[in-house]
Amino acid sequence: GSIRIPAAFTGVFGIKANFGRVPVYPESAMRSLSHVGPMTRTVADAALMLNVLSLPDHRDHTALPYQGIDFTDGLADGIAGLRVAFSADLGYASVDDEVARIVADAVTAFAELGVSVVHRDPGFENPKGIFKTHWWAGAAGAFAHYPDSEKAKLEPELAEIVADGQKLDIMDYLAAMEGRTALCSQLRSFFEEFDLLLTPSLAVPAFDVGQLQPPGSVPDDTYWMDWTPFTFPFNLSQQPACSIPCGFTQDGLPVGLQIVADNFREDLVLRAARAFEAIRPMDRRPDL
């Protein structure tokens, strides 16, 4: 969620391209969980950036074959006739009431875009444990070999994650891989029925910098996962997903709408985001 989280909290557009669409070198410590994409003021600017970011780099052995896609093509074609699902909580997430109301209102705008939105959860259980094993193992791989003097410089929470990651064994990791495969299969089947999935981008409005959990949260050793329940499943599935501003809380904090499509269909995510942006502009830049 390292694109969609800051995009949603700051009221800008951000798209996580399909894994491999944007070549990366050196490889992230989080391996195939890590995705790259732009954060911009407008959807059109993000499409232009993707044209450049997706240029080939032979050093990334996981990169998709370069196809010379122009992500601005068809951007204004609209989404009339597409099959769209809306899941308010993925069947398991706890969502702030104000965020839930703002997102639900934003979803009603899709009727103006020529689509009928069906309320449907994708049908998978919370993959928090699956993601945790992958991410904690990646953190251990990145930092466990550091001398203690260097580990002491890590933030306490990250140091704890590294220590816990070192306790994982190969069977833990294989079980997480099997769970990830099942999740991906479920989502591929879901997108046989639907072209797009709409959800909140995040479960809460923005909170103070330097905190890993909102005030009043129940202490949890996964820190950020309970308030990011909509982002990490699609890191696991590697499917393209964006966050687009869809409203503001009473305190003036931006709220994001997440749009997800099947693997390799960034074009649908961008088209839907551009269509929504056109009828629900949310730009609140101050006068300078």
Score class of each variant (00 low, 15 high):
172 D>E: 09
114 G>T: 10
33 L>T: 00
159 A>D: 13
256 G>N: 03
14 G>R: 07
130 I>Q: 07
142 A>Y: 01
89 D>Q: 04
91 G>H: 07
210 G>K: 09
265 R>Q: 15
160 E>Y: 04
222 T>E: 11
247 G>M: 12
50 L>A: 12
76 A>S: 15
128 K>I: 05
260 V>H: 15
214 P>Y: 10
38 P>W: 00
143 F>P: 02
102 I>M: 09
151 K>H: 05
240 P>H: 14
69 I>W: 13
212 L>W: 07
247 G>A: 13
173 Y>Q: 12
11 G>T: 06
73 D>P: 00
90 L>E: 08
141 G>D: 08
248 F>C: 10
238 Q>S: 12
175 A>Q: 08
284 R>W: 06
37 G>A: 05
142 A>M: 11
196 L>F: 03
31 R>S: 11
232 F>K: 03
268 L>T: 07
109 A>I: 01
163 A>H: 07
34 S>K: 00
267 D>K: 04
51 N>M: 12
192 E>I: 10
42 T>I: 09
165 G>E: 01
251 D>G: 12
243 S>G: 06
245 P>A: 01
235 N>E: 04
207 F>C: 10
69 I>F: 13
142 A>H: 13
168 L>T: 02
41 R>E: 06
79 I>T: 08
126 N>K: 09
87 S>E: 14
13 F>S: 01
152 A>G: 00
71 F>Y: 15
57 D>Q: 05
203 A>G: 03
19 F>G: 08
209 V>F: 15
183 L>C: 07
182 A>H: 11
224 W>P: 00
199 T>H: 12
225 M>A: 08
225 M>Q: 05
190 F>W: 14
256 G>D: 07
272 A>Y: 09
167 K>H: 10
273 A>D: 11
237 S>A: 15
128 K>L: 04
273 A>W: 11
123 G>S: 05
45 D>A: 12
127 P>S: 11
27 E>R: 11
152 A>I: 03
41 R>W: 06
224 W>T: 12
16 K>F: 02
265 R>H: 14
108 T>C: 04
128 K>R: 14
97 D>I: 09
235 N>H: 03
101 R>V: 06
226 D>V: 10
249 T>P: 08
258 Q>P: 02
158 L>I: 10
158 L>K: 11
29 A>P: 06
178 E>I: 12
